[in-house]
């Protein structure tokens, strides 16, 4: 009897193990896999209002989510064919590396360690949001600068560059501090609101979106000190040139569309206009009426049209989720087009 039982348990172990054993992928691009599957698996946070947040009806919304839709429009031809995977900060790179998701669109900071093959070995698309790490404190605490936080407790989330930036800032000033480290942002917020920490730290955009959910947001303020550059960008697992090229040019398409004044509302008119007028060569190339730019990437030649129909241009995406009338207003600042004084720009579609 015991022998039989041990046999059964051994057998089930074997089955479980063989289910886990995935053989190494061949040389084909993930792009083929995505279009064959007819669906894009996109890693998001799901917990950051304005970037990716679960709605009442169970769908996700936010800037990161719109990027997933734009990628799906370009790679599959349908922005609704996205399977969202909510991931915590520590989980995200493992999920990407193991191939559980195709790409990550989740407030991820672009830096050397994550890009290099000796680090996370990821391939980053262009920066879609220029952020910086900040500190949120109570207005009545009297804390106005980093020096005022000497020896105090600071709530911080795990699995992010946030911890290192915090340390770099305090160490360079020779200030002692106590990091209270939690697993995700919700716990950081709870620890801060319960008074465990005198300050909480995260990217300023995340602080703004967290504060929007407080009972009395006006009682809290984001310090003027910016601890780091946080350029946030979507990314794929390294070594897949076709996928990373595809992602890169989808983001550039969103930016170029804003530069050209092509919006979700007028893209069909612009397309018709370009078809009728052979002199509009720049727009014709961009929208795939002439030339073979899309095919060169291994996408449909008019992928730009699909993308703009799905989400609108970069500026429209920004305003939809972070604009002055949205729930999480964040001034555009660095994220304006280059011609408007920001740093957002795209190389030519040629």
């Amino acid at each position: 009897m015991t022998k039989r039982r041990s046999f059964v348990s051994l057998l089930s172990t074997c089955l479980a193990m063989s289910a886990c054993a995935t053989l190494g992928a061949g040389d084909t691009s993930r792009l083929d896999l995505i279009s064959k599957r007819g669906e894009l698996r996109c890693g998001v946070s799901g917990k950051i209002p304005g970037f990716s947040f679960l709605q009442r009806d169970g769908s996700y919304a936010g800037m990161d989510v719109d990027l997933c839709k734009a990628f799906a429009a370009a790679f599959v031809g349908d922005p609704s064919k996205v399977q969202y995977r909510p991931l915590t900060a520590p989980e995200r790179f493992t999920a990407l590396k193991t191939g559980e998701i195709d790409l990550l669109s989740r407030n991820t900071t672009f830096n050397l360690s994550r890009d290099a093959s000796g680090g996370n070995g990821a391939s980053f698309a262009p920066v879609v949001f220029h952020d910086g790490q900040g500190l949120l404190v109570r207005r009545d605490s009297g804390i106005r600068s980093l020096e005022d936080l000497k020896g105090q407790s600071i709530c911080v989330g795990s699995g992010t560059t946030t911890e290192q930036n915090l340390n770099d800032a305090f160490q360079s000033l020779g200030l002692p501090y106590k990091p209270i480290k939690y697993q995700d942002l919700n716990q950081v917020v709870a620890g801060y609101l319960q008074g465990r920490c005198q300050a909480m730290t995260s990217d300023r955009s995340q602080l703004a979106s967290a504060r929007s959910g407080f009972e009395r947001p006006e009682d809290h303020e984001i310090l003027a000190d910016v601890l780091s550059k946080e350029p946030l960008a979507p990314l794929s697992s390294g070594g897949d040139q076709r996928l990373s090229d595809g992602m890169r040019w989808v983001v550039y398409a969103l930016i170029t569309a804003e530069e050209m004044g092509i919006t979700q509302a007028n893209v069909d008119d612009k397309l018709q206009e370009a078809r009728d007028n052979p002199d509009l060569t720049k727009v014709r190339r961009f929208l795939g009426v002439e030339g073979d730019l899309g095919s060169k990437l291994g996408l449909s030649n008019d992928f730009v049209v699909n993308v703009i129909q799905a989400t609108g241009n970069y500026g429209e995406i920004y305003n939809r989720h972070l604009g002055p009338d949205s729930a999480v207003p964040i001034p555009r600042g660095l994220n304006q087009l280059h011609r408007d004084g920001g740093v957002i720009t795209a190389p030519p579609f040629q």
Binding site: F93, T94, S158, G159
Partner: peptide, 11 residues
Amino acid sequence: SDTAITQTGRA
């Protein structure tokens, strides 16, 4: 170790 893994990428 979670922090160390994130900072070094050595999962």
